[in-house]
Structure formats: C-alpha cells, structure tokens
C-alpha cells in the first residue's frame, strides 16, 4: 500500500532562540485510506504535527512528505494543501461566507475551478457531510455539529485525498460529536485517508492505528486494541482509556479476567452478554 503522509525525523520549535522543541524527532507514516488517531496530553505537540501535514508549519530538521512531495517545495504548496485538507477545533473560526453553500464553495473558488464544476463539487461535498438540507442557511444559525460539518464540507470540496482533523470534535456537545463521527465514517468508506488529533478515547478506539505523543515524540504506536490494553502506560502519559477498557480493568481487578481487546462499548456489551447468559 502506498504512503499518503510521511514524516522523517521531524524537529520543530516555535522560537528558534529557545531550545524548546515542540516536535523532537517524529518519524511516522500514514498509508492511503488509513484512519490514524493521534493522542496526547495538552502541549505534547500533536497539533504542531498536524500543521506540518499541509505546510502550515515547515520542519526545522527532517522532512515531511505528502505523496512524495516535500512540504518545503514552494511551487507545490497549493497542490499539497489541496491534497491534505485541515479541519480545526472551533467551527466558528473556519467559516468564511454568510451562506453555507457559498462557504463550501470557497476552496474550489480559490483553486480556480470552473463555475459549473464548483456547483457539482459543492453539492457532492455537502451531501457527503450531511448538510445539504442546510445549504441556504446562515452559518450562525446552525448548531455546533452542523457548523463543523460545514467546515468538513468546505474541505471536501477541494477533493482532498486526506483530511486532518485537529481536535475537530473538542468543542462539540455529544450530539454534535456523534454527527461528526458519522461523517468521518462515511469519508472512511469513501477511501479518504483520515488523521484525527483527539482527546476522546472513544474516537481513537475506532481508528485503524493509534499514535500516542508525549514531549514532542511518538511514544506508543499500535492498533487501538494494543494501545488500550496498556492502561498503566497510558496513565503515565496523562491519558485515559475508553470507558469500556476502564470497565474491563475494573472487572479484572475484581478477579474477573476480561479479554484485552475490549475497548468499545459494543465489544464490552457482547462479552458481558456472553458471560451472563
């Protein structure tokens, strides 16, 4: 399988005068079509890493490759940004226009896509994100989850191969978060590569692969089952495990050996059902 994103020994600091490295030698890759979740406590460098994937930030040392394009190649800047879409935390600060469909059209307009094609792309992106019914609405009248889906649609209209979600669900209520997760599932099914920076373990549990960051480095890597089996180690990085894994650990402490791969509510429910039958 081909690689979508590759970071090789990336080091970055915000202030070149200080020896404080926000990223201190990160090496990782994301395959095409993969869903990778990046976990980490505040200030661990996960958002900084995300901003390297579409050349918002450039590494001081090391290289970041987007489908073999070095993010430092200036001529390729807009190709890179078109390929890797980025969705941020606060939906309010990403929406430019006063009407939903015009906001979704913003990116293709910038790319100089012909008018008729903008229309098809915008409709397609809005349907994908599930906000087609709201296309004529004013963004400030929408709920948080709807606004964030407008932001996702705005990125989808570029037809990116990869979407980076930088804590895109952090400011949403549970309902909004669920709506956004449904959209992410749809994108996954459509073959879009997804990198999700998140605080929510439940979201990370659905990923293909989980990366854990601490102090500007990647400290753990593996499938969600592998990662969330190591409760103690996660706690040492100031991270929690999903509620289902917490339940698993609690039961185990009481002398009820539970399988390690229980990390989602469904898996926990199935296992308990079998047990109690």
């Amino acid at each position: 399988m081909e690689q979508m994103l590759r970071a090789q020994n990336v080091r970055f600091r915000y202030d070149p005068e200080q020896p404080v490295w926000a990223l201190d030698g990160v090496t990782m890759d994301v395959k095409k079509g993969e869903f990778v979740a990046v976990l980490g406590a505040n200030g661990c460098g996960k958002s900084t890493l995300a901003k390297h994937f579409n050349a918002i930030l450039l590494p001081e040392e090391g290289t970041v490759l987007v489908e073999d394009m070095d993010t430092r190649t200036e001529e390729k800047l807009y190709d890179i940004r078109q390929k890797v879409g980025m969705v941020f935390q606060n939906p309010d600060n990403q929406i430019v226009a006063t009407v939903v469909e015009e906001d979704v059209a913003f990116a293709p307009e910038n790319l100089g896509v012909p008018t008729e094609e903008i229309r098809t792309r915008v409709d397609e992106a809005m349907k994908m994100a599930g906000i087609y019914e709201k296309r004529k609405a004013a963004p400030h009248k929408l709920s948080g989850g709807q606004k964030q889906r407008v932001a996702i649609a705005g990125v989808l209209a570029m037809r990116p191969d990869c979407i980076v979600l930088d804590e895109a669900t952090a400011m949403l209520d549970p309902k909004g978060r669920r709506q956004v997760m449904q959209t992410i599932d749809k994108l996954r099914a459509a073959g879009v590569t997804i990198v999700s920076i998140t605080h929510y373990m439940e979201e990370a549990a659905r990923a293909d692969r989980v990366l854990v960051m601490s102090g500007g480095r990647i400290v753990m890597e593996g499938t969600p089952q592998e990662i969330f089996a190591q409760t103690g180690r996660l706690h040492s990085y100031h991270l929690d495990v999903p509620q289902a894994a917490e339940l698993r650990d609690a039961l185990e402490a009481e002398g009820l050996p539970a399988p390690k791969q229980i990390i989602t509510p469904d898996a926990a429910a199935d296992w308990l059902f079998e047990l109690l039958k």
């Binding site: 807009y78 940004r81 078109q82 059209a105 293709p108 910038n110 100089g112 008018t115 903008i118």
Partner: peptide, 13 residues
C-alpha cells in the same frame, strides 16, 4: 488551508 491566495485566478460559484 483552503488555498486562499487573493483575488487572482479566483472563480465564482
């Protein structure tokens, strides 16, 4: 991130 680079070469919906 959405490739904004001023008015040059922009099309419209």
């Amino acid at each position: 991130c959405r490739c904004y680079r001023g008015g040059a070469g922009r099309t419209q919906l």
